[in-house]
Design a protein around this nucleic acid. Structure first.
Lengths: 151, 151
DNA sequence: GCGATAATCTCGGTCAGCGAGATATTATGC
DNA sequence: GCATAATATCTCGCTGACCGAGATTATCGC
C-alpha cells in the first residue's frame, strides 16, 4: 500500500493525534495523582452529567470495559478523592447513582481547558466551509473506526 | 464557552475519535493476549523499524513513559511472545538493540489493516483539496496538543 | 410470599509497573 | 594509566489495578 497517498498520510496523522491525546491524559493523571483509568472514568462521568444521563457503577464499568470488582475499586478511589458521591436510587434501590462533585468539574476543566483553547484557536485560522469539511471527514472516520472494531 | 461553536464541536469529535481508536487498540490487545502497553510498544517499534531508527529498551521506555524495571518486563514479555529479539550493540556493548520479528510486522498489519482500509475508503469520498484541508487542520491540532502538554 | 433476576460489593489472587540498587560497559579528569 | 563518573540495562521486593468467583441486597413476575 502506498505510504504517501493522501489517505495513508491522514491515517498516520490521526494516529499521531491519538497518541498525543493519550500522552496528554497520562501526564494530567500523573500530575494529579490519578490513574489513566480514573481520567477516562471522569471523562465519561462528566459527559453523562452534561447529557443528563444517570450514571451507575454498572454503566461506568461497561464504558471502560471493567468487570464489577474493578469498577467497585475505581468508584471507591474516585469517592475517596472527593470526585464522585454514591447515592442509592430511590426508585430502584438495587441501583447506586454516581454524582460528580464540583471538584471533578473543575478538574475536568483544568484538563480540557488548555487543549480546547488551543484547538479552538487553531480552528480560527480556517474558514467555516473548511471546518465543515473537517467535521464531515472526522465523522466518517468515527464510523469507520466503529466498523473496523465490530468486525 | 459555547458548546455549539464549530471549534468546540470539532474538539468533541476529535476526542470521540481518540476514544474509538483506544478501544480498537484495547480490543485488539485482548484478542491476542496482549496488554494495551504491548500494543503501544509494537506501534513504536514498527515505526522505528520503518524509519530505520535503532530501538533500544531505554528509548522504548521513554516513548511509553515507563521506568527501566517496567521496560525490562515489557521487553521480556514481547520476547517471550516472539515479537522482538534482543541483541547486544557491537559498537557500544552496554546497549541492547531491539529487532522486530516478522511475526510482529504481520500482527501490526492485522491491526492496522482494517482501519487503514476503512479510512482510505472514507477518504475517497472527498476531493483532493478537501483532504489537504483536513491534513492542515490535523497538523495544527497535533501542534496544539503538543503545546498544551508542555505547559 | 417465593424463586428468578439484577445491581453491587467482598475476597483472594495475578501481574504490570515503580523505587532502589546491582552489574557491566564506556567516557573523563588528573 | 587508573580511579571516578556517567550510561544502559537488569534484579529484587513491593504496591495496587484488575480479574474470577461468589456473597449480599433489592426488585419483579407468578
Amino acid at each position: 500500500m502506498d505510504d504517501q497517498s493522501p489517505g495513508m498520510r491522514l491515517v498516520h496523522l490521526l494516529r499521531a493525534v491519538t497518541v498525543e491525546f493519550e500522552l496528554l491524559g497520562a501526564e494530567f493523571a500523573a500530575r494529579h495523582g490519578l490513574h489513566p483509568t480514573d481520567v477516562r472514568a471522569l471523562i465519561h462521568l462528566l459527559d453523562a452529567a452534561r447529557a443528563g444521563t444517570r450514571a451507575t457503577p454498572g454503566w461506568l464499568g461497561e464504558q471502560l470495559r471493567l468487570n464489577s470488582a474493578g469498577t467497585t475499586a475505581l468508584v471507591d478511589r474516585l469517592e475517596r478523592l472527593g470526585l464522585v458521591r454514591r447515592s442509592r436510587d430511590t426508585a430502584d434501590r438495587r441501583r447506586v447513582l454516581l454524582e460528580v462533585e464540583e471538584k471533578a468539574v473543575k478538574l475536568g476543566w483544568t484538563f480540557f481547558g488548555p487543549v480546547i483553547g488551543e484547538v479552538v484557536a487553531a480552528a480560527e485560522g480556517f474558514e467555516a466551509g473548511e471546518l465543515e469539511t473537517v467535521r464531515r471527514f472526522l465523522t466518517a472516520v468515527l464510523e469507520s473506526a466503529g466498523r473496523a472494531r465490530s468486525v
